[in-house]
Deep mutational scan, measured.
Amino acid sequence: NQESVVAAQLIPINTALTLVMMTTRVVSPTGIPAEDIPRLISMQVNQVVPMGTTLMPDMVKGYA
Rank of each mutant, 00 (worst) to 15 (best):
N46P: 02
P50F: 14
L55R: 01
T53Y: 14
V20Q: 04
N46F: 09
M59E: 01
I13H: 10
V60C: 03
V60W: 02
I41C: 05
G52R: 06
V49N: 00
G31W: 03
I37P: 00
Q9R: 06
S4Q: 02
V48N: 15
P50G: 11
V27M: 07
A8T: 07
V27Q: 09
V49F: 02
M56N: 07
N46L: 12
P50Y: 10
G52W: 13
D58I: 10
E35R: 07
M22K: 00
P57W: 13
T53E: 10
T53W: 13
V45M: 03
E3R: 04
S42T: 05
S4I: 02
L19Q: 13
S42E: 08
D36K: 15
N46Y: 11
S28M: 06
T23Q: 13
V26P: 11
N1E: 15
M51C: 06
P12R: 11
Q44M: 07
N1W: 05
P38K: 05
M43E: 04
K61S: 08
I11K: 01
L10K: 07
M43I: 12
T53M: 14
P29R: 03
P57F: 12
M22T: 02
I37S: 05
A16F: 09
I13V: 13
T18R: 06
P33I: 12
D58T: 15
P33H: 08
P57V: 12
N1H: 09
T54N: 02
S4A: 03
T54I: 10
P33S: 12
V20F: 11
I13T: 07
P12L: 08
L55E: 00
V5P: 01
V49G: 00
L19N: 07
M56G: 08
P38N: 11
P38G: 12
V48T: 13
A8F: 09
I37Q: 07
A16G: 07
D58C: 15
A16Y: 09
V20M: 07
V60M: 05
D36V: 12
M21V: 03
T54M: 04
T24P: 11
P29D: 12
A64N: 09
V49E: 00
S28R: 02
I11M: 05
M22I: 13
T24W: 13
E3V: 06
G62F: 12
M59I: 13
I13N: 14
V27L: 08
T15H: 05
I32R: 01
Q47N: 06
T24K: 13
